[in-house]
């Protein structure tokens, strides 16, 4: 089942997520990207109801882009996190979105940062965070091995430890994971951790 987690390192932040699209007991797809690149220096990892996740993250992404067009300056990660929280909080009393979000970003003034936002609109600035069934293992693993001054190599090693633990201890473990990173050079895909590959779809 779903696993989204992230951590802040020395001068970067990492978000990792499983890539399974699941419905009931069936796995429909194992290469679904659940980490959206919000803008040049922000990553938004999301778990929850598939439709809500797609709808809400895209809504936030488009609003962040609109802000940048209108004002010529990008939103800071903190401002984007507070905006996202506000949108979830307003929706909460009308038609709530079932999404949990890990927002990671890099700002010139403040460096890397990571925000935990859950579907009931609580917001926390954290060094490490996780959502879903995988969080039980990812959190314990990060509690044991996390340091604030980790290098990229060390952090990726820790992410891999989390993935191995989820795969070996969780009954309903997802097979594949995707890791993305954000630092001063921007937000980008870092690596895939695949144990099975989806059969290629033949052309329609």
């Amino acid at each position: 089942m779903e696993s989204v987690f992230g951590l802040v390192g020395k001068d970067f932040a990492i978000v990792a997520a499983d890539t399974s699209a699941v419905h009931s007991i069936l796995v429909h797809k194992t290469n679904e990207d659940k980490i959206m690149i919000l803008d040049s220096h922000k990553l938004m990892g999301a778990s929850g109801e598939t439709g809500d996740r797609a709808q809400f993250t895209e809504y936030i992404q488009k609003n962040v882009a609109l802000y940048q067009f209108r004002n010529g300056i990008p939103l800071t990660t903190a401002a984007a996190a507070n905006f996202t929280r506000g949108e979830l909080a307003t929706a909460l009393r009308k038609n709530p979105y079932m999404v949990n979000i890990i927002l990671a970003g890099y700002d010139k003034e403040t460096g890397p940062s990571l925000y935990f936002i859950d579907y009931i609109a609580s917001l926390h600035k954290l060094d490490k965070a996780a959502f879903g069934y995988g969080s039980y293992f990812a959190l314990s693993m990060m509690d044991r091995h996390y340091r604030q001054d980790m290098t990229v190599e060390e952090a990726i090693e820790l992410v891999d430890k989390c993935i191995i633990e989820i795969r070996s201890r969780l009954v309903v473990a997802p097979p594949n994971f995707l890791i993305k990173i954000v630092d001063k050079d921007g937000a980008r895909e870092y690596a895939w951790r695949e144990s099975i590959k989806d059969a290629p779809v033949s052309a329609a």
Binding site: N71, I73, T76, A78, N82, G86
Partner: peptide
């Protein structure tokens, strides 16, 4: 400030 928890840029 309510939306972004940051002071509003002057030009805006």
């Amino acid at each position: 400030t309510y939306a972004y928890q940051e002071p509003m840029p002057v030009e805006q």
